[in-house]
Each structure stands twice: as C-alpha cells, then as structure tokens.
Amino acid sequence: MAHGRDESGAERADRNWSELLQELRVMQTGVQVLTGFLLTLPFQQRFAELDRYQLTLYLALVCLSVATTGVLIAPVAVHRSVFRRGLKAPLVTASDRLTRLGLVMLGLVVTGTAMLAFDVVLSRTAGIVVGACAATLLAVLWVLVPQRLGAAARDAARDRARTVAHVSP
C-alpha cells in the first residue's frame, strides 16, 4: 500500500499514466492553439512593421512553441515505442520528466507571447513589464502553489504518523 491506496505497483503506474495523460491533454491543446496563433502572424498586415527586436522575439517564440509541442507530444511517442513491453513505470517516469520540461517551456512561450503583444501594441517597456508579471504569475501558480501544497501534505502525513506513534501501545 502506497500513499494510502491499496494498489499494486502496476495499478499505481496505470493510475499515474492515466492522470498524466489528462494533464497532457490540457497542455497539448493550449500549446497547439498558441503555436497556431504564432504561425498565422506573418500573414497579418502589421507583421511587416515589426522591428528587429520584435522579429527576433517572434522567431524565438515560434521555435520554442514548436519545440514545446514536440516535448508535450513526446510521451505519446514513447508510449507507442514501449507499448505492451511491461515498461509502464519507466514510461510514467520519462513522461513525467518530459511533461515538467514542457510546462517550463510552455511558461516561457506564454510569457514571451504576452511580451511580444504588449511590445507591438504599446511599447517595449510595457512588453517587458507584462513579461515579468506573466513570468511571476506563472511561477507562483505553477511552482510555488504546488510546492506549498506538497509541503502541507508532508506536514499532515508527519503529524498523522506522530499521532499514530503516540497512540500505539
């Protein structure tokens, strides 16, 4: 029994894989829409007005967005190559790492896209400020909040263990 669940290692790997797939579906959709949006920008009339900085940022974002799409779809490719080989636990571990990397990359793409939009519409300063705010917000939501929840869960588990230890004869 692990983490309060009565499940075998194989059952845990199956559950973890299923949960990871649900998370990937959300991220894959988001990055694919964002990539599609970025790829349509050169076909807009104002695109020709971008300065060197904006054009460089745009091209970097396209490359990063395409790479993020690849990283977030990679767990599916890994699954296809290890399907029915009894490698579910290593699949989950590798896919978890890819997903974490993809989350960081997605945060960079979202931040950079906000920077570019505000830079083009308002000013370079506005773009930098919005980029910093977006990066901070995503770091809080995607890093700090989960870390706090994890710490609270560890503290609660430690408190339960102490209580059990004191109650035991």
Rank of each mutant, 00 (worst) to 15 (best):
S81M: 15
G36R: 06
T56W: 01
R97Q: 08
I128S: 01
A94M: 09
L144A: 15
G112I: 02
A153T: 09
W17D: 15
R84G: 10
M1I: 08
R46A: 08
R100S: 10
L59C: 08
D119H: 14
G127T: 04
A139D: 02
A48C: 00
N16G: 01
M1F: 08
A161D: 13
G102T: 03
Q22C: 05
Q54H: 10
G36I: 04
A10D: 15
G150V: 06
T93L: 13
Q147R: 14
S18P: 10
L57K: 03
A132H: 00
T125P: 01
V104M: 09
R162P: 00
S8Q: 02
K88P: 02
F118R: 08
C63T: 08
F118L: 15
Y58K: 03
V143R: 10
Y58A: 09
T111P: 00
P169S: 05
A139F: 15
L38W: 08
A77M: 14
A152M: 10
E19L: 13
S18I: 03
Q147N: 10
V167C: 02
A152S: 10
T56D: 15
L137D: 01
W17T: 05
M105S: 11
T111R: 04
V121L: 13
S123C: 04
R46D: 14
R97D: 05
S81H: 11
G4F: 03
V110L: 13
A156L: 14
D6A: 12
V66I: 15
A60D: 08
L103H: 07
L41S: 02
V31Y: 04
G86P: 04
Y53P: 01
T99H: 12
F83T: 10
V145K: 05
C63F: 10
L108T: 00
D155G: 05
A151K: 12
H166A: 15
A134L: 06
R84K: 15
F118V: 11
R52M: 12
R46L: 02
A10T: 05
